[in-house]
């Protein structure tokens, strides 16, 4: 594997500027493709690498070998996959053995999926889409456009397009060092801080719950309204409590997300029936 770190000594044809866009387009085959539980994204690895495999194969046996290894199970975060594909292109051009390439693919897909899922699916996209959803709820047509454009720029252009080139140019050693240096963890940490801050504000802005409850000592009594008292205690207290309850059910009680949604729906209908919220 260590021989693969220097791509400069490659023997095969070099990938040039124009090819990158072509390979990027081919990598779009990653999902859903023929997504199945036993093979997942297997076919897109073969599809993306096919032109490189064909250009660098010296005989029919090498093509058969490449086909056989690349239809095997493959699954990672779809954007992060391009780092791995870029690396594979460099390895194929260096005429590394299929076993070595497969070992790197399989070795990296897990860690890269972990980084990509937590960073892109569960942090960056929720932040961008919640901003767009907030705009949409105010009747602003730019909401969906903002979410898509910003997420495509980060996911498709920065991570995917440039990630592929980075994987190709920097080789295995860089990626291993990057994974081991702890820098990725620091970046995840930094983005999570933004995400958590945004969620705090989202709770205040977009969870709408208030109580019409009035306490009366007798029928003639004007009564005391509950909501103004709650507001004096803390604005948006009920939204914060409901979010806390949902978090407790999901994270601590491990209740299925759709079950939590159903509990909240039924709960809201019941509380509303008795005029509590």
């Amino acid at each position: 594997m260590s021989t693969a770190t220097k791509t400069a000594t490659s023997k095969g044809p070099r990938t040039t500027g124009k090819s990158w866009f072509h390979y990027y387009l081919r990598s779009l085959s990653i999902c859903p493709c023929w997504f199945s539980y036993d093979k997942m994204q297997a076919m897109s690895a073969l599809f993306t690498l096919a032109p490189v495999i064909k250009a660098n194969a010296r005989n029919k046996e090498e093509i058969i070998e490449a086909c056989k290894t690349n239809v095997q199970f493959f699954n990672t975060q779809p954007f992060m996959a391009n780092f791995i594909f870029g690396l594979c292109i460099a390895l194929i051009e260096n005429h590394e053995s299929q076993e070595a390439i497969q070992a790197i693919k399989v070795g990296l897909m897990g860690p890269f999926a972990g980084i990509g899922d937590s960073l892109l699916w569960f942090t960056v996209r929720p932040i961008l889409f919640s901003i767009g959803a907030g705009l949409a709820l105010q009747g602003n047509a730019f909401g969906p456009i903002f979410s898509l454009a910003s997420f495509w720029f980060i996911g498709q252009y920065i991570v995917r397009y440039h990630g592929m080139k980075l994987g190709y140019e920097q080789g295995t050693r860089f990626i291993e060092e990057f994974a081991e240096s702890g820098l990725m963890e620091e970046i995840t940490n930094a983005i999570s801080i933004v995400g958590v801050t945004v969620v705090g504000a989202l709770v205040a802005n977009w969870v709408r719950a208030s109580s019409p409850l009035v306490f009366k000592a007798s029928a003639e009594d004007a009564g005391m309204k509950l909501q103004p008292m709650l507001d004096m205690l803390m604005p948006k207290l009920l939204p914060a409590l409901f979010t806390g309850l949902a978090y407790w059910l999901l994270a601590k009680k491990k209740v299925h997300p759709v079950a939590v949604i159903l509990i909240f729906m039924v709960g809201a209908v019941v509380l509303s029936y008795f005029n509590i919220i």
């Binding site: 569960f122 929720p126 995400g195 969620v199 989202l202 709770v203 977009w206 969870v207 709408r208 719950a209 939204p239 409901f242 979010t243 309850l245 949902a246 978090y247 059910l249 999901l250 994270a251 997300p257 939590v260 949604i261 909240f264 729906m265 809201a268 919220i277």
Partner: peptide, 10 residues
């Protein structure tokens, strides 16, 4: 109220 569940999921 349901957005609370979405935020809790994130």
């Amino acid at each position: 109220i349901l957005p609370a569940v979405g935020f809790a999921m994130v």
